[in-house]
Design a protein around this nucleic acid. Structure first.
Lengths: 194, 194
DNA sequence: CCCCGGAGTAGACAGTGTCTACGCCGCCTG
DNA sequence: CAGGCGGCGTAGACACTGTCTACTCCGGGG
């Protein structure tokens, strides 16, 4: 274990990430991560003056993870914009499904809007990748690229959210989010190329 | 005030709804609503054995409210399916924006999944209205009605979520969700009729 | 008449975030 | 080399929360 080698702050965040992934946001308390890191309950305060600061740091990690996965996908799938966009979408949905607790935390703005961390801006590079692909795949008759990209992102996000909540399966009777995703992509980008 | 006339349970829920609307989900504690109802801290337990039960009851109220608004809209706007669908979408987004705290609570499945209340099923009638309109407005070449409706709902929901979070304004540079909503509707339902 | 059960009270307990006062130890300065 | 000083972590306190349990009160049925 080189965990002992890292600074306390990193160990605390790591413990927090672990907890979020395993048991969800509500399990992450300052005192619990202190316990897991083997320090006193007051120690985290040096790095995270408030609970929100801790959660923000954890969410930051989540965004970094998601960003890395998307970049990995973009490196792997080297094809036409439409295909790349589909791969990006799958990566997004898979991340949401596989790391439900983290995904939820990442978009709990009521917990995270600690202005100094500018967490919102953290998701912008991600959006830029999507916007870029959309601009390439877009039909001339479509809405402006930024708007189209925003609508598509919202659709992705909604699918992830409602699917995780179990509402989409209930409503559509589907057992996979695949059909809904395909429908969304075709809606926003036109029929899939053969 | 006929609030005193109502049973304690109703008064507690009312206080909770008020709190959620005013200060958000995190402000709703069993002890606080007891205080507001002028009873001892243990009294709510008779009706809400657990915190989750209370939040579920409040969310139920939220779904009832949203459903009522949608029905009101459907009663008011008596036009072609596409127009009605647009009005429904606006009602959904306006509700989310105007009652942010409640909207958030309604979809915090981690807080609500008290199985006995079958809260998920509460949103099904709402979806049925949307699905019905989609079935009417759908083009023959589109995806199956249930899938199309699911995708459209997800898009609405995502717009509401990301807009409330401030991400969409940041990403698209827009000051209203209107452009994104229009883009989404056109994407899923084809170009708007003149 | 009595008692019994629902409804609300009151006290306790563990857990939490936050604040404060305090030790420790290494480094920089004189 | 001596001294102090500042970052880092400890420990105790406080107010607050959810939850549990023992109790009181009171009205209606045997």
């Amino acid at each position: 274990m080189d965990a002992d080698e890292q600074g306390l702050r990193a160990r605390l965040v790591a413990a927090g990430v672990d907890l979020v992934l395993r048991e969800g946001q509500s399990a992450v308390s300052l005192r619990e991560i202190a316990r897991r890191a083997g320090v006193s309950h007051g120690a985290p305060r040096r790095y995270f003056p408030t609970h929100v600061d801790l959660l923000s740091a954890i969410a930051r990690e989540g965004f970094a993870d998601l960003t890395a996965r998307v970049e990995q996908t973009m490196r792997t799938v080297d094809a036409d914009p439409r295909t790349r966009l589909t791969a990006l979408a799958r990566t997004y949905l898979d991340f949401a499904a596989a790391h439900r607790g983290m995904f939820e935390l990442m978009f709990r703005h009521d917990l995270l809007d600690s202005g100094r961390l500018r967490l919102r801006e953290t998701s912008l590079p991600l959006f830029a990748v999507l916007a870029d692909l959309v601009a390439q795949a877009r039909q001339p008759t479509d809405a402006p690229a930024a708007v189209l990209a925003g609508a598509l992102w919202a659709n992705l996000h909604g699918i992830a959210q409602l699917w995780a909540w179990g509402s989409l399966p209930l409503a559509t009777g589907a057992t996979t989010d695949d059909a809904v995703l395909r429908a969304a992509l075709e809606a926003h980008l036109g029929p899939a190329p053969t």
